[in-house]
């Protein structure tokens, strides 16, 4: 079991996270939310974006968070991805209470175990495709040689190895999103968070991206947490979490 009061050098926390992943694979619960509530604003103007959510996500699941805009689905994803902290309740990542982690441990956890795919891609158009893909490894402080090698591997897995040296702005929408997936993959994450991954793409290209994500889910056992409006995409997931006014209204299984 991981004790958070251990010295938190970077090297050690990587080891810790490996232990976490190992533990989690035993327990099979990768994220567990206990009565999480998120309130924006104070007193009279207070607004409950999420109300008393309980959730348990197992390793290898694919989860769709659905709901109308303003239902709190983005807020939920941000909380699960440790980009935000709940007003009350607690969130366990690999059986570890996230509220007890230091800022640095949270940063490391996101860097080592999470991958992010966004609707708007967020690629740096001045940089090469490869430079964009290896950003998480650069943040992690990996050597140039190693990160280039892993970057090319990740691009190969999304069939874009030949575009490595191109500028990110030269790519089509679908290619851009594949670069984003390669970027999300590069750190061998246990979870990929995807916020409307097909929202900016035509249905055919969107389909290809979906196939890619589910392939990773099946072949590598990466847990998928997808926020989407798209019912088709939601149905392909193993579980849907339907939110309305900050509450879970059904918990359908496929």
């Amino acid at each position: 079991m991981w004790v958070s009061s251990q010295p938190n050098t970077e090297a050690k926390s990587i080891v810790k996270i490996d232990v976490l992943i190992y533990n989690s694979r035993n327990h099979m619960s990768v994220i567990s939310a206990k009565k999480i509530t998120r309130v924006y604003g104070k007193k009279e103007s207070a607004f409950k974006a999420l109300d008393n959510i309980n959730l348990d996500i197992k390793q290898g699941e694919s989860i769709a968070i659905i709901g109308k805009s303003g239902s709190g689905k983005s807020t939920l994803m941000h909380l699960l991805a440790l980009l935000d902290t709940p007003t009350s309740g607690s969130l366990f990542i690999n059986d570890q209470d996230s509220g007890k982690l230091s800022k640095k441990e949270l940063d490391n956890l996101r860097n080592q175990s999470f991958g992010f795919v966004f609707q708007q891609f967020f690629l740096n158009s001045n940089n090469s495709v490869l430079e964009n893909v290896i950003l998480p490894l650069k943040i992690a402080g990996m050597d140039r040689k190693d990160r280039t090698k892993r970057g090319l591997e990740a691009l190969r897995s999304v069939d874009l190895a030949d575009k490595a040296k191109n500028k990110a702005s030269d790519l089509s929408g679908g290619q851009k999103q594949r670069v984003c997936i390669a970027r999300a993959l590069i750190n061998n994450p246990s979870i990929i968070f995807a916020d409307e991954p097909t929202g900016n793409l035509d249905s055919q290209t969107g389909n290809k991206i979906e196939n890619l994500l589910f392939k990773l889910n099946k072949e590598q056992g990466i847990t998928l947490i997808i926020v989407t409006h798209d019912d088709e995409l939601a149905k392909r997931c193993s579980r849907q979490i339907n939110l309305k006014d900050g509450k879970v209204i059904n918990r359908g299984k496929k």
């Binding site: 991805a81 980009l83 800022k103 640095k104 940063d107 490391n108 956890l109 996101r110 860097n111 080592q112 999470f114 992010f116 966004f118 708007q120 967020f122 740096n124 950003l135 998480p136 943040i139 992690a140």
Partner: peptide, 16 residues
Amino acid sequence: TKEIGLMKAMGMSSRK
């Protein structure tokens, strides 16, 4: 702004 947000989401510390 967005780039900073992305880097922070990917675990870059405020200090960096």
